Simulated scan of single mutants.
Amino acid sequence: MTAPNWERATILYARLALGAAFLSGIASRFGLYGKDVGYGNFANFLKYTAEVNAFMPASTILFLGWSATLAELVLGIALILGLWPRWVALASALLLVLFGIAMAISFGIKSPLDYSVFSASAAAVLLAIHIPGRRT
């Protein structure tokens, strides 16, 4: 495989991995993996949303849960389809870093590091700055 082919394959891999991760989270919160797998249902997801955002007023949790779900749905689909790659990657990086910061505030820094939230955010930043065909 030539260098440009490796580059394209790597970018595709990162896009598909990030997009699939977003969509998998949505599948879990709606019980598509089963009621005893992951969140299992949206109510359990909202409980987790409240735990991650323990510093936020309880009245914001429903909004945060649905906002995260909508953002992950749109970003996941756009990443997989390769739509607006730079802007979608930047939005993905922002969403992930905000999630990681919320996790760190509520659970300590170990939690987002153990779940590779900042690593995924960094991968999204690399996608955003990637310029096809440019050699580094």
Rank of each mutant, 00 (worst) to 15 (best):
D36H: 12
G108C: 08
A50I: 02
V37Y: 12
M56E: 09
S119D: 11
G40V: 02
L64I: 15
L96H: 03
T136P: 11
H130M: 09
L126A: 12
G38N: 07
L81V: 08
A120D: 08
V74M: 05
S106F: 12
S106P: 09
L46S: 10
F63H: 07
S116D: 13
V97C: 09
L73P: 05
A78S: 13
L75I: 04
G34C: 02
I101A: 14
I105S: 00
A54M: 05
F55V: 00
F22N: 01
A50Y: 09
M1K: 13
T49E: 01
W6N: 12
L81M: 07
G133H: 05
I109G: 09
L95H: 15
F42D: 06
L79R: 12
I26L: 13
I101R: 06
G25H: 12
W66S: 09
W84F: 15
L96Q: 03
L94G: 02
L98F: 14
Y48Q: 14
E51T: 07
G40D: 10
A102D: 12
L90Q: 11
K35V: 01
L62I: 00
I80Y: 00
F55S: 13
A14G: 00
L94R: 02
P85F: 01
L94T: 10
L62R: 12
F22D: 01
R86K: 15
V97L: 11
A78M: 10
I101F: 12
W87C: 00
L83I: 08
L23P: 01
L12F: 07
W6I: 08
A78P: 01
A102I: 07
V37C: 09
V52H: 03
L70N: 06
R134P: 06
F107N: 04
F63T: 12
E7G: 04
A78K: 08
N44F: 05
R29M: 10
A50H: 07
A27G: 04
I77F: 15
H130W: 13
A54Q: 02
N41Q: 05
